[in-house]
Design a protein around this nucleic acid. Sequence first.
DNA 1: TTGTCTCCCGAAGGGAGACAA
DNA 2: TTGTCTCCCTTCGGGAGACAA
Lengths: 389, 389
Amino acid sequence: MMKGPASAGPENPGVDGGDSRTINPELWYACAGPLVTLPSVGSLVVYFPQGHSEQVAASMKKDIDAHIPNYPNLPSKLICLLHGVTLHADAETDEVYAQMTLQPINTCDEKALLAYDLALKTNKPQTEFFCKTLTASDTSTHGGFSVPRRAAEKIFPPLDFSMQTPVQELQARDLHDSVWTFRHIYRGKPRRHLLTTGWSIFVSGKKLLAGDSVLFIRDEKQQLLLGIRRANRQPINMSSSVLSSDSMHIGILAAAAHAAANSSLFTVFYNPRASPSEFVVPLAKYNKAVYGNQVSLGMRFRMSFETEELGTRRYMGTITGISDLDPGRWKNSNWRNLQVGWDESAPGERRNRVSIWEIEPILTPFFICPQPFFRTKRSRQPGMPGASA
Amino acid sequence: MMKGPASAGPENPGVDGGDSRTINPELWYACAGPLVTLPSVGSLVVYFPQGHSEQVAASMKKDIDAHIPNYPNLPSKLICLLHGVTLHADAETDEVYAQMTLQPINTCDEKALLAYDLALKTNKPQTEFFCKTLTASDTSTHGGFSVPRRAAEKIFPPLDFSMQTPVQELQARDLHDSVWTFRHIYRGKPRRHLLTTGWSIFVSGKKLLAGDSVLFIRDEKQQLLLGIRRANRQPINMSSSVLSSDSMHIGILAAAAHAAANSSLFTVFYNPRASPSEFVVPLAKYNKAVYGNQVSLGMRFRMSFETEELGTRRYMGTITGISDLDPGRWKNSNWRNLQVGWDESAPGERRNRVSIWEIEPILTPFFICPQPFFRTKRSRQPGMPGASA
DNA sequence: TTGTCTCCCGAAGGGAGACAA
DNA sequence: TTGTCTCCCTTCGGGAGACAA
């Protein structure tokens, strides 16, 4: 058994510590999942304090307490200029998250805002990759990783098949720029691709379990990148010995309120896998959804969900109600104000409340708002931003 | 090798998850260290937002950013009623911390407050314990833990010395109420006490390194308790993928300000080992120190520090300056407003700024304020709480 | 095509006394 | 009294093909 020059464990060229250096965006997006996009720097976005609060609550496994003070000056949504986005990965868990710097802007010029319809360029890189959910054998202490044939052929450098048992050494970088080395061998009867030496160190290093997934990417420079996605979406983390959850929630609201009052910058962390809370939405996407669609009770729609193996699938549903999620605190918010039912029973947790920009309404010719009394009660003037903005 | 019924690892009877159940106070205090006391529930305390902020900054390894808004309505100290104290330990690291529920009280009746001089009952339990700093051999993969003779005799149940090699099984509970089982044997030539089977599982489970300490307590019910204290006081934790450090600081200040404005409850976490920031001080202790002593430049004092092995030692120093730590944000605060020099060079990090209630002034008959011009500039009226309260 | 088993053999590590600081 | 070493022997677990789903 030949050990690499740096013996066991990953080799980390960058001075990491946290993860404050540049993270490979391809890998970040691959780990984040097919549905995650981030708004472009310099674009306008809508920030929902309510959604932000929800994400923190999900991360803390704790409901928002009732005794958080109201911030009457903080609207349920803030139009912001997105000053910066940096990609990160948790040093412990590799969980991906993004830091965004936002600046609330004056919303007096509503016309200009409505006209804001920048092309939603998806700057998600498209690259060759494969993703495999780990089997019990893959994570067992006996033996290595069984590489799916097509995956090995598509992603890994070709082996020298003139050898009796073709072998090579693979190097792949993870989100922290740590290099992991694997022995890639083609052996057995019948022949198959395996990763042997180096694999178990990776599994234990990342604390992977059967059911978790690994993904390999080959980037444009023919370098291998390596990411993980954990199966159990249990809110991994902390009951935080540092800050009470009250203080956290207050911190979010007060920081946003302060920034709104002064048009100053504030910073949020967006954690795409912690909870389905895309609380920073491109203004163009928001406008298109809110002013482009007539939503009504009974309306049918499609919505994309992530599958295993990094694909997407669309499920059909029906709008069963339109109401504020938290009428006390966040009145007239568009945040998840649609109650929905689903045609199929849920693969994982299907949500029973969504926001309008998450769905694709199906406007059949025979089903354009036939029941006027189903319309939302507060008749919304088309062409006006929501009441509380 | 006889495995316990529950095979490897600790047995955890309580449904832990976090640590929300009752933590053994003796063990908590032992792990917290000899200098840590917590104010009594129902007593009055002084809360320093500045100190709280400092602790969070230390936990985040991040300085307080300049662009945190000022909270002009938030004084540098709040007199609070302490409604509740619960003891906790971090599920990951066993780091001890306390959650305190505070209620700011109206400070109009200053006379009553000054009169407040409840006896500072130290409710720290005093129990039999021993603490040993782990050697390289203790933490090596080969062999177990060498128990100091006196420690074994004082704390462990007596062995049956009629046996040729006396052996017994020990069970000890940690802060999470997990039970760890060890084989305690008296063998070797010359004879010594050792913990063998079970020890390495404990070391790896708690991620102990040479230099860390373990402590065993025998409580009044003759049960063994087991705690750890880590050597490297590196701020262990998180660059937090949940909340920006700005939001955290704002959260602290806004939560305190909101509670102060409404005389409502708020919650803080006090982490005695994260940083020397005792930011919740019994009012009696505060009053005694602030109004009982005349502090002057050049004044000599003693101050207690923790030694290894859970003892205390007092070091001598001299007051070299009296000034606000952060004159911009927290004017006229008593929080660490004394600059000090030390007679001996520091064992670990000796602090160069302390608060008056942390020191014991030495009032020599020949050294009672001989230099009037050394007095603090804003002549403090004795009998008046600090200007900003 | 690939997940699991079992077998083989080398590495890791627990548990003992020796020895010395 | 106790920290480190070394030796012994068990256990663990990487790495191979067998075999079956």
